[in-house]
Computed example of a mutant assay.
Amino acid sequence: MASTALILPGWHNSGPDHWQSLWQSTHGYARIEQHNWDFPLRGDWMMQLEETVLKSPGVVLVAHSLSCVLVAAWAAHSQHAHKVKGALLVAPADVERSEMQHLLHSWSPIVRERLPFQSTVAVSRNDPYCSLMRASAMAHAWGSSLVDCGMCGHINTDSRLGDWPEGFALLQDLLKEETPHGH
Score class of each variant (00 low, 15 high):
residue 3 S to M: 07
residue 3 S to G: 08
residue 4 T to S: 05
residue 4 T to Y: 09
residue 7 I to W: 09
residue 8 L to Y: 13
residue 9 P to T: 05
residue 10 G to Y: 07
residue 11 W to M: 07
residue 12 H to Q: 07
residue 12 H to N: 12
residue 13 N to G: 10
residue 18 H to G: 04
residue 19 W to M: 04
residue 19 W to T: 02
residue 21 S to K: 04
residue 24 Q to M: 13
residue 24 Q to P: 09
residue 25 S to W: 11
residue 26 T to M: 13
residue 27 H to E: 11
residue 28 G to H: 04
residue 30 A to I: 02
residue 30 A to T: 08
residue 31 R to E: 15
residue 33 E to G: 13
residue 33 E to Q: 15
residue 33 E to M: 08
residue 34 Q to Y: 14
residue 36 N to A: 12
residue 38 D to A: 12
residue 39 F to Y: 15
residue 43 G to H: 09
residue 45 W to F: 07
residue 45 W to N: 11
residue 47 M to C: 11
residue 47 M to D: 09
residue 48 Q to T: 14
residue 48 Q to G: 14
residue 53 V to A: 10
residue 53 V to K: 08
residue 54 L to V: 14
residue 54 L to Q: 15
residue 55 K to P: 12
residue 58 G to M: 06
residue 58 G to S: 10
residue 59 V to M: 02
residue 60 V to T: 10
residue 62 V to M: 13
residue 66 L to Y: 03
residue 67 S to G: 15
residue 68 C to H: 05
residue 69 V to K: 11
residue 72 A to G: 07
residue 72 A to R: 15
residue 72 A to E: 11
residue 75 A to H: 03
residue 75 A to R: 02
residue 76 A to D: 14
residue 77 H to Y: 02
residue 78 S to H: 02
residue 79 Q to H: 14
residue 80 H to S: 08
residue 81 A to W: 13
residue 83 K to F: 13
residue 84 V to W: 05
residue 84 V to G: 00
residue 84 V to P: 03
residue 86 G to L: 05
residue 88 L to S: 00
residue 90 V to L: 11
residue 93 A to W: 09
residue 94 D to F: 04
residue 95 V to G: 00
residue 95 V to E: 00
residue 96 E to I: 02
residue 96 E to Q: 11
residue 97 R to E: 08
residue 97 R to Y: 00
residue 98 S to Q: 13
residue 98 S to R: 12
residue 98 S to T: 07
residue 99 E to M: 10
residue 100 M to L: 07
residue 102 H to R: 14
residue 102 H to T: 11
residue 103 L to P: 04
residue 104 L to N: 08
residue 106 S to M: 05
residue 109 P to V: 05
residue 109 P to M: 09
residue 110 I to K: 05
residue 111 V to G: 00
residue 113 E to W: 08
residue 114 R to F: 10
residue 115 L to K: 07
residue 115 L to P: 01
residue 118 Q to E: 11
residue 118 Q to Y: 02
residue 118 Q to R: 06
residue 119 S to M: 03
residue 120 T to A: 01
residue 121 V to T: 09
residue 122 A to Q: 03
residue 126 N to C: 11
residue 126 N to V: 05
residue 128 P to R: 04
residue 128 P to G: 05
residue 131 S to W: 01
residue 133 M to G: 06
residue 133 M to I: 09
residue 134 R to K: 14
residue 135 A to P: 01
residue 135 A to L: 06
residue 136 S to K: 09
residue 137 A to H: 00
residue 139 A to Y: 04
residue 139 A to W: 00
residue 145 S to V: 08
residue 152 C to A: 12
residue 153 G to N: 03
residue 156 N to D: 08
residue 156 N to P: 01
residue 157 T to Y: 10
residue 158 D to E: 11
residue 159 S to N: 02
residue 161 L to H: 02
residue 161 L to V: 07
residue 163 D to M: 10
residue 163 D to G: 10
residue 163 D to Q: 13
residue 164 W to Y: 12
residue 166 E to V: 10
residue 167 G to M: 00
residue 168 F to Q: 12
residue 168 F to T: 12
residue 169 A to P: 04
residue 169 A to K: 15
residue 171 L to P: 01
residue 174 L to D: 02
residue 178 E to M: 01
residue 178 E to F: 00
residue 180 P to I: 00
residue 181 H to T: 00
residue 182 G to S: 07
